[in-house]
Design a protein around this nucleic acid. Structure first.
Lengths: 146, 146
DNA sequence: ATCGATATTGAGAATCATTATAATCACTTT
DNA sequence: AAAGTGATTATAATGATTCTCAATATCGAT
């Protein structure tokens, strides 16, 4: 299987940090790379469980998160979903189905994005809180549940 | 203890639905009413556990959520936090500490709020997703962890 | 290519938050 | 007072996630 551009970036990034891109980890980032939204350990297990055991998936997700390659997303009860980090995916937001919990990526108009950033900035000055990032979740019913 | 205005609203709402506002439930909504952000079952247990057992807290939270008095908030791993529903609290957003997980309420400028609503609207037309609400989480370090 | 040090894996047990079950209690209604 | 209805509580069960540890794979030095 050919290495995608995304994969090369990740490979380099991990190499610089002396973290190995093993076949299990590669399978995971590859799977996240083609997903159109964050995926949970069991989502991943459903698609790559024939090659990577669940315990390894959990461990690899922790390693990749620690390394800054993926980021967690918490929007429904009980499960943590992961997606490739912002520097790999670009900044975006999420549609969250309140019925089935599925999460889908979405982009919003750049002028709004700019305003959101301005807000986040101003918050940092007003209150004793050091903002780092922001996340907009749009909650509703996905096409399946609608 | 005197009944607050908030409590009267909740009492009436529950009465209309034939759901009793028992002393445990009252203690919970009272506690959520004075909190400056969503609280988890164990947060609540820490503050009112001398009067309401943990299992009751969980069950009451489920009843109150079902009744539309409180809403869940998912922003950190593993725990669900609850807050009084929007019709009681007003619309607002959250500061989420990426270090300790504490969540604090925040209000944003109404012109931005209006724009967010416009975005949510337009999403509904563009993609096959029926938006219902939106949530903006500002992630960073709280004053404790900073 | 081989060796030894170190990192990773795989399988299962253990843990944590949460939910379901079942027995008991309180309050109404008969 | 007996019977119902809903609420409470202690406890068992569940599901997601983390931990443990022996087996395996990888890297750098030889």
């Amino acid at each position: 299987m050919p290495e995608t551009n995304l994969e090369k970036q990740i490979a380099g990034w991990l190499q610089e940090r002396d973290i190995r891109l093993t076949s299990g980890r590669r399978t995971i980032v590859r799977s996240l790379g083609v997903a159109d939204g964050p995926r949970s350990a069991s989502d991943l297990y459903a698609s790559i469980g024939d090659t990577v055991p669940l315990s390894s998936i959990y461990r690899s997700l922790a390693v990749l998160e620690e390394a800054g390659v993926i980021s967690p997303h918490y929007s429904t009860k009980g499960v943590t979903r992961y997606e490739l980090a912002e520097w790999l995916m670009g900044h975006h937001h999420h549609l969250v189905c309140v019925e089935c919990g599925q999460v889908e990526d979405i982009e919003i108009a750049s002028e709004i994005e700019t305003q959101l950033e301005a807000i986040v900035e101003s918050i940092g000055r007003e209150v004793s809180f050091a903002p780092r990032d922001h996340a907009l979740n749009i909650e509703g019913l996905c096409s399946e549940c609608k």
